[in-house]
């Protein structure tokens, strides 16, 4: 069984088709780099996988649970970091992690352990009592990562997890992801291509809601020659010049 299985997923916003019938599977041990220009449909796909956005057509399953008919079970086995790391500004970091634990049914001593674990691994121990609204962009992102990891899910969906982090923090987050990679199934969207080379064993490039490429980083670079950066621009350049648009 594939941990993530996407079949002909489709989503349109009025006349704009954001995701146009994409299909792929991801297995345990995979770290999938989900690439594409702004507005290609990356975030929309991730939102549908998380159950937040209902698809117009097609379906997907996460850990064997259908995202439409069994959304709660999907959300139980998934950690999701949404675009721009949304959070409750008036809560403290600790308060927010406690809230997430409570909603996920993690109680008393297990809760303390889980929060301690993610606080250390996401390096937010120093800001536990600070209000979320006063956090810097980097800390906010790491809190988002911490809440996605607190229940130790099998499947992780991370929408630009390293956006706004400084080089040291980026390195730490990459190390964290690589450390988990073997027992989890991870999808990461990012614009930082060196990151993809460093941590992903598979790459999907989408543009205009369609999959252009689905293969390993090495074979992609071997096929097109040159760096991933060049390949990305070659494949998506002509499209994004004309289109632009919202994500």
């Amino acid at each position: 069984m594939h941990l993530i299985e996407i079949k002909e997923l489709r989503k349109a916003f009025g006349p704009i088709v954001a995701v146009d019938g994409i299909s792929f599977t991801v297995d345990k041990g995979d770290v999938l780099g989900f690439l594409g220009p702004n507005g290609a449909g990356k975030s929309t796909t991730m939102k549908m996988l998380s159950g937040f956005l209902p698809p117009d057509g097609g379906t997907a399953s996460v850990n064997g649970h259908d995202i439409i008919t069994d959304s709660i079970a999907v959300r139980r086995s998934m950690g999701y970091l949404a675009e721009n790391a949304p959070a409750y500004d008036e809560m403290s970091v600790l308060g927010m992690l406690k809230f997430v634990c409570e909603a996920r049914g993690i109680k008393s001593s297990a809760r303390r352990q889980a929060i301690d674990r993610v606080a250390v691994s996401c390096a937010i121990t120093g800001v536990m009592h600070q209000l979320v609204g006063t956090l810097s962009k980097g800390y906010r992102r790491r809190l988002g990562l911490a809440q996605a990891l607190v229940h130790d899910p099998d499947v992780l969906i991370l929408d630009e997890p390293t956006d706004g982090l400084d080089p040291n923090q980026k390195y730490e987050v990459r190390k964290l992801i690589m450390g988990m990679a073997s027992e989890k199934c991870i999808i990461i969207s990012t614009h930082i291509l060196e990151e993809v080379e460093a941590i992903c064993n598979r790459i999907i490039i989408i543009s205009d809601g369609r999959i252009l490429v689905d293969e390993t980083a090495e074979s992609l670079m071997a096929k097109h020659g040159g760096t991933l950066d060049q390949t990305f621009r070659e494949l998506t350049g002509s499209v994004s010049q004309v289109k632009g648009g919202a994500s």
Binding site: F52, R75, A82, P86, Y88, R104
Partner: peptide, 14 residues
Amino acid sequence: RSNSIELLFSLPIT
């Protein structure tokens, strides 16, 4: 407005 609704509904809450 703050998009925290996306966080809220990524949790197993109906």
